[in-house]
Amino acid sequence: MNDVILYTIITLGGIGAISAVILYFVAQKFKVFEDPRIDEVEEALPSANCGGCGYPGCRNFAEACVKTDDLSTLFCPVGGNDTMGAVASVLGMTVDAKEPQVAVLLCNGSSANRKRTSEFDSAANCTIAANTYGGDTDCTHGCLGLGECVDACGFDAMYMDKETGLPVVIEDACTACGACVEACPKDLFQLRNKGKKSKRIYVSCMNTDKGAPAKKACDVACIGCSKCFKECKYDAITMANNKAYIDYNACVLCRACVSVCPTGAIHEINFPLRKAKPAKKEGEATTKPVTKAEPKVNLVEKAKEATPKAEPKKEEAPKADEKKENNNEDKSSNNE
């Protein structure tokens, strides 16, 4: 009996010792030198592995950061300036702060604004639909509403609004990683600077058709009339392909273009309501550094707001408008 125990101990102990020796030499032999700073940098990164920086994952980005002499070309959109600052401090470099960005949808062709003309009945995938035909409305540039962007978003920052049939970006959750920009086959997403107090003005349309067919296909299309272009005093608006584009760097958020747009294609986001409470403007702005994002309300409201301007016939629209206004009032007072 004692023999058995003894032999067992000897064999197992022997195997253990030999393995340890082998492992030690193997570890020495195959030792790979790795810059310890890579780990440190990786630590500072958000570990989302979203690819928003242009590298496949956070570790690759960290390697790139360690290798480079100049951090200005590298940016982690998810972590933003704080993260980049941390990375820079690890590496003993400095980095300039970048304007935070957010993804915006450049289409407002909700089911109310855009008449459907056919029905897509294949695999529910935007790219498949876009490869097949122009889309289920007469606008061949607009959102197909099949939600590939929502699937692509790795931060749950998007959802499909059933009512409008359009995706909605939840601003607070959006990290501007650019996955939706990549995913959309119609190129309807753009990363824009978040802007002062998250206020943004942009043309929410990608329709490059001429005015008449564009307007016929969608009530809120940019028809390329150039009114905003003429109105803008800061040269922030350019016209190309029957469509206006607002440069977010040049725009001073004066909102002159918004009021002249005949179709309501220009959106203003996170501005306080104009006529209802002009006095609130400053108060809200100071007490609300990060605007509470309610894009759903905003978008719908903008759509509804735009329609009566263009087509005063519609009776329902103003009613809905009032409701939304009330909602908004409640909210802003709460915020105060």
């Binding site: 056919s118 029905e119 897509f120 009945d121 294949s122 695999a123 498949i128 097949t132 035909y133 289920d136």
Partner: peptide, 10 residues
């Protein structure tokens, strides 16, 4: 919905 032509892939 019946008023719309269906579009699908072959």
């Amino acid at each position: 919905m019946g008023n719309f032509l269906k579009v699908s892939l072959s």
